[in-house]
Amino acid sequence: MTERPGGYALNAPIQTPPPRGRGARSNLSGRFEATSREAFDDGWSDGDATPPTLATIVLKDTSRSIIATNNSPDISFDQSINTYRGCEHGCVYCYARPSHAFLGYSPGLDFESVIFSKPDAAALLEAAFNKPGYRPRPIMIGANTDAWQPLERKLETTREILKVFARYKHPVSFITKSALVLRDLDILAPMARAGLVSGAISLTTLDRKLARDLEPRAAAPHRRLETIKGLSEAGIPVTVMMAPVIPGLNDHEIEALLDTAAAAGARRAGYVLLRLPLEIKDLFRDWLADKRPDSAARVLSLLRQMRGGKDYDASWGTRGRGTGPYAELIAARFRAAVKRSGLDGARPVPDFAGFERPLGTAVQPSLF
């Protein structure tokens, strides 16, 4: 079994208490593993033991393509780029967690501490743009995992990708909950002046304590508001995404959160109801039991009311909104708050007419 710095094995259970600064409370084996391992307390551990630390390790992603495609009718784009697999932010609710199981790692603590990076991402994107048959279409950065997570400060993989978009005058949009995106305003601001970029900031809550518990290594709420302001002042149209809305936990903040985001410069708003597919269901239950035990029963009950009595329903059209009276109430409140806050601006329309390959760029010839 491979060891990580600090002595803990990869894809193996970690005894309680959970590591400091991490979101998941466990590291259960992925659903594709031949064996399943789970840590448990046999009564001999010290209940006051100091939580361990868990070092992040970085592995190379050897993918030979960089643009992923999807056919989901629930989202407004069919192409995306994710510069990292796994995410150090450690958001316990992250819908991308189950994807780590495909790589042979746990969607729990491994997801937030075993990160796959794509050092050749910029070169792969340039090669894609240079293909003779390439026609520009909307591309979203960070649709699965955050492209400006802490590792990006050192690796700068996302920054290099942005340089390619700017050089080819290719429109791009992004979503992040990291203030690090402001580092790249020297690239993004000129693109914004040419109408080539729009952004979204995920803002789950204004409550610092709740944010720290839910998203332990993501930017604090006030830093995300500062990020909205910085992007807006640079001319970048900004959408605030309240994602996820967790009934019984943060849904009471809808109006205040949208008002505050609008004051910071956001132009549009959207939301996604908490999704609990596959392993996320158990990870979130464990988190509730540890961090919000008094609210756990109510939160889970409300979620089931909005999912037809189930923990999760993946049906197109309703997976991000839910069904039933409580879901309808949240939708109505959100619509009213959006209108009152002036967050009902028009969706930015990307202009692909300016796309061009820089002079001297070698276009890959067709093999057929």
Rank of each mutant, 00 (worst) to 15 (best):
L329Y: 02
P293K: 04
E215F: 14
S315I: 00
D351A: 10
L203Y: 10
T50C: 03
T16K: 02
I75V: 15
L367N: 01
I187D: 07
A332G: 13
G90S: 08
M140E: 00
L288S: 08
A289L: 14
T158E: 05
G270I: 03
N250K: 15
V363K: 03
D294T: 13
R25N: 09
M306Y: 09
P358W: 11
Q305W: 00
D294Y: 06
T227R: 09
R135N: 01
F102Q: 05
N250S: 05
S315G: 11
K209E: 15
P132L: 01
S80D: 09
A192R: 13
R275T: 02
V338E: 09
T69I: 06
R217L: 10
L180V: 06
K291N: 14
T323A: 09
I228Q: 06
L210S: 05
T205M: 03
G345Q: 10
H170Y: 00
G324Y: 06
E156R: 15
F334W: 06
I246N: 12
R64G: 01
A289S: 14
S63F: 04
A332F: 00
R167H: 09
Y326P: 01
G86H: 12
T145C: 13
F32Q: 02
G47N: 00
P348A: 01
A179W: 13
L188G: 10
A101P: 13
P150I: 05
A200W: 09
G265T: 08
S117D: 15
D313G: 06
M1R: 06
R298S: 11
A49G: 02
A123N: 15
F77K: 04
L196H: 00
D259K: 07
L10I: 08
L278C: 02
V349A: 14
Y134T: 06
R4D: 04
V299C: 11
R137H: 02
A189T: 11
P348T: 03
A192M: 06
N71H: 11
F165L: 02
R268N: 06
R268V: 13
A332C: 09
D61E: 11
G199V: 11
R135H: 01
Y8R: 12
F165H: 04
P325D: 10
V245Q: 10
N71G: 00
Y95G: 03
F174A: 04
R224C: 13
A289C: 03
V172E: 01
A346I: 07
G86C: 07
S36I: 14
R97F: 10
E255N: 04
G104K: 03
R333H: 12
L288Q: 09
T56W: 02
K169L: 10
P221N: 08
C94F: 04
D78L: 03
N70W: 01
D213G: 05
R217C: 10
T227C: 07
L367P: 12
A314H: 15
V240L: 13
N82C: 05
H252V: 08
Q149K: 03
A49I: 14
